[in-house]
Design a binder for these strands. Structure first.
Length: 480
RNA sequence: GUCCCCGUCGUCUAGGGGUCUAGGACACCGGGUUUUCAUCCCGGCAACAGGGGUUCGAAUCCCCUCGGGGAUGCCA
């Protein structure tokens, strides 16, 4: 069994395509199938090497590994369609020779006019077959005009194509209503997707094509090509599409669609893969947080959803948070530190074990890695400017008593060794303050906020010097 | 327009003739824990698109309607 993912390098890896890649990968793992990566770069205007590189990079980041591809090579290469033109040429010559295809001299403008006419008349456009049977003289005349022909596939009449789709079930098409003879080679000699996809699948011995549902209406064209060429037809599984909140095909206006951007925002590959797989698939156990191995062992080609799924950014965030919390602390630190650096904190300035404790204290607040700076700031900045709530709290008369006592203690009585254990206790004892009247001012003066990790964790992590500086700052600001 | 696909809580889904007064998850709303926040725990809200069949019995099977999506490219 052999599966493939065949992206077109015309931009970044789209989240919907990533889902196709992930599902193919899980299925390949499940059935112990070969996973082939093929680059469909026949759109010469839009395809770029830079895009191909970024797609490969994103796939690797997701944890997807392929057995054959443009970078790894393999027995069925080359794996870029742009490097296989001579192969397609042979098939085109064969079709031409057998009259299963013919040269078409209609210009794009003429075609456009016919299309417009059909749409204005409320009819479906079907190529009328104007060039179906040109004789030598007619062809020569067109050539003399400087027209460069495309090659059209002669769609046989009255043929039925039945696709036994693993997800959709039996889908039946009549050759009479697939739009007429379609172009298989452009006038510049470059073949088009609908034509060569089936050749490559056959030559690369792909047994199962798992791809987006948007390809379903193209399938009969591909099957007809295969029949004309005597090539084997793979089995199909057409995945339902991913939609945005308004139920139209997911696009940028719905939110982030680039895998690279998710990575940069601090989503974990494991979480993204997990979420993508859950979009249109549910484990029998009902569990939703699953490793790649667990998903691979439970997934089946036949139990993927038939209906489209709306991409829920909120749920992805939730899932990412779950993964962040489950991370081994050292790995969490490795992942978070670059985000601290991005916010201007030089991680090398801090002691690693201390930094890990800080991260552990605030990771529960983080849904994405880039949330870290906001929550860790209270440990990393020297002075925390109190926010509005904290200011209001520190202006309370009781709070001033607490702040004043804190200052007295930390300047006169407490030091590095005992402040953490004694500061709050002594304030309580000496001022008689308790409950929120005690903890809130302490929290506000030490962290600048009324919210945050428990003080028992926060105070020792802050360290004596920083606590002292903040107490003095609060005292200057609110008690003088 | 034509062809194709799809239709269970707001969202992702379980369910495939009786065990469904329809289960889980996210979100939301309460409550508990945390003297705070987040986490965590408990509870609540909320759906079989509509209409006809078939059947003793339909969310499940069939048909129609409606709704949504996709395709209809010298894009993939």
């Amino acid at each position: 069994m052999r599966l493939r993912f065949a992206p077109s390098p015309t931009g970044y890896l789209h989240i919907g395509n990533a889902r196709t890649a992930v599902l193919n990968y899980l299925l390949a793992r499940k059935y112990n199938a070969a996973y082939v990566l093929r680059i469909e770069d026949t759109d010469m205007e839009r395809s770029t090497r830079r895009s191909e590189d970024s797609i490969l990079q994103d796939l690797r980041w997701l944890g997807i590994r392929w057995d054959e591809g443009p970078d790894t090579g393999g027995e069925n290469g080359p794996y870029r369609q742009s490097e296989r033109f001579d192969i397609y040429k042979k098939y085109t010559d064969l079709l031409l020779e057998q009259k299963k295809a013919y040269h078409c001299y209609c210009s794009q403008e003429e075609l456009e006019a016919m299309r417009r006419e059909a749409s204005e008349a409320g009819r479906a456009f079907v190529y009328p077959g104007r060039c179906r049977s040109l004789d030598r003289a007619e062809r020569a005349a067109f050539e003399a005009e400087g027209r460069r022909p495309t090659v059209r596939f002669r769609v046989p009449e009255g043929e039925t194509v039945v696709v036994e789709d693993h997800i959709k079930g039996r889908v039946v098409f009549e050759s009479g209503n697939i739009g007429g003879d379609f172009i298989i080679v452009r006038s510049d000699g470059v073949p088009v997707y609908n034509y060569i996809v089936i050749i490559d699948d056959a030559l690369m011995k792909i047994t199962h094509v798992v791809r987006g549902e948007d390809h379903l209406p193209n399938t009969p064209k591909q099957v007809l090509i295969a029949r004309a060429l005597g090539l084997p037809v793979p089995e199909y599984a057409h995945l339902s599409l991913v939609l945005g909140s308004d139920r139209s095909k997911l696009s940028k206006r719905h939110g982030i669609t680039s895998v690279e951007v998710y990575r940069k925002e601090g989503y974990l590959a494991e979480a993204l893969v997990n979420y993508l797989a859950m979009l249109g698939w549910a484990a029998e156990s009902g569990e939703e947080i699953l490793s790649i191995d667990e998903m691979a062992s439970q997934i089946e080609m036949g139990n993927l959803a038939r209906s489209a799924a709306v991409f829920d950014f909120q749920k992805l965030r939730w899932m990412n948070g779950m993964y962040i919390r489950a991370l081994d602390l050292s790995r969490a630190a490795d992942l978070f530190i670059p985000y601290l650096a991005e916010s201007g904190y030089d991680a090398s300035k801090y002691d690693r074990p201390w930094l890990e404790r800080v991260i552990d204290a605030v990771r529960g607040n983080c849904e994405v890695l880039s949330d870290i700076a906001r929550y860790a700031a209270l440990f990393l900045d020297d002075i925390m400017e109190p926010d509005a709530e904290a200011v209001a709290m520190l202006k309370e008369p009781d709070s001033k008593i607490v702040v004043a006592e804190a200052r007295r203690l930390i300047t006169d009585e407490l030091g590095e060794s005992n402040y953490a254990a004694e500061l709050v206790n002594l304030i309580k004892k000496n001022t008689g303050m308790k409950g929120k009247r005690l903890f809130m001012p302490v929290r506000a003066m030490l962290t600048g906020s009324l919210h945050g990790p428990e003080l028992d964790i926060t105070v020792p992590l802050l360290g004596y010097d920083r606590c002292r500086a903040r107490v003095e700052y609060a005292h200057r600001r609110f008690c003088s």
